[in-house]
């Protein structure tokens, strides 16, 4: 089976966000594989181990993303591809990203594409379904269970806490929800092997893409931090009095009940 995983390099969830000069400060920040993409990588490896084939992890951005690709290879992916857009694109949005990824994938005949259901930085959750639409294949988002028999696929997906049980077929793009699996940590032999696995780099020139055709449709005009939440009042006194006071405050001061 020909399996692709779309991955994104994101800030570590531990990071505080610092804005200066209207941009998010990246200096000194730790980066990780988007946590939802880790579920996608793990699932891809499990599908390959059960059905045979090859797992290719695909990302776009700058050379820094090679580190996350190596981590995915160390987990067990077979190949990695970086679409390096560093020199060609200043601004990109979900439209841009999907156009480029779909263009790369269009002649690769993937049977299964996996991605995270959302990236924890931008948080739009658009790129996976957009890529599927551009490739004219079906997609299922926020999956928590995946079973493949031949070309038939049985899926359970999370819909606001309900579980939807559905049937579809390959080729298919799915996006991973928490609970799909338990992503493995790269083992030491895995890390050693990963160094020798192929990591290809392509640029927009290598693809059939004119920069103007993928120009972003949206523009971020400002980034700012929310007003800092001031610590409020810790109530004092006898516990039952505190509870009574709290209910009064919620009713008369905060007016939320």
């Amino acid at each position: 089976m020909n399996i692709y995983v779309l991955v994104k390099r994101t800030f570590d969830t531990e990071e505080k966000i610092v804005v200066s000069g209207g941009k998010i400060q990246e200096d000194g920040a730790e980066f990780i594989i988007n946590p939802y993409d880790e579920y996608a990588i793990e699932e891809a490896i499990q599908v390959r181990d059960a059905h045979g084939g090859e797992v290719t992890v695909l990302t776009m951005g700058g050379e820094d993303a090679e580190k996350q690709l190596r981590t995915a290879l160390a987990m067990g992916a077979d190949k990695a591809v970086l679409i390096n857009t560093e020199d060609d694109l200043d601004e990109m949005d979900q439209f841009t990203a999907a156009q480029i990824l779909a263009d790369y994938l269009k002649d690769k005949n993937p049977d299964l594409i996996l991605a995270g259901n959302v990236a924890i930085d931008g948080g739009s959750g658009q790129v996976g379904p957009r890529v599927a639409d551009l490739l004219d294949i079906n997609y299922v988002t926020t999956i928590t269970k995946l079973e493949i028999n031949g070309t038939q696929v049985n899926i359970v997906r999370d819909v606001e806490g309900d579980s939807e049980v559905l049937e579809t077929s390959l080729p298919l793009l799915v996006t991973a929800q928490q609970g799909l699996n338990e992503p493995r940590y790269p083992s030491l032999p895995g890390i050693m092997k990963a160094k020798k696995k192929p990591l290809d780099e392509v640029e927009l020139d290598d693809l059939d893409i004119d920069e103007d055709d993928v120009e972003a449709k949206t523009e971020t005009i400002e980034i700012y931090l929310p007003p800092k939440k001031e610590a409020g009042r810790v109530l004092q006194g006898d516990l039952s009095n505190q509870v009574q006071e709290l209910v009064q405050l919620l009713r008369t001061e905060a007016k939320v009940v």
């Binding site: 449709k217 971020t220 929310p226």
Partner: peptide, 21 residues
Amino acid sequence: VVFIRPIFSGKAFEKVKIKDG
């Protein structure tokens, strides 16, 4: 019209404009 949306799960916000379409 300008749209405000959270990024980094609400650790920050962005204002976005639609340029085209």
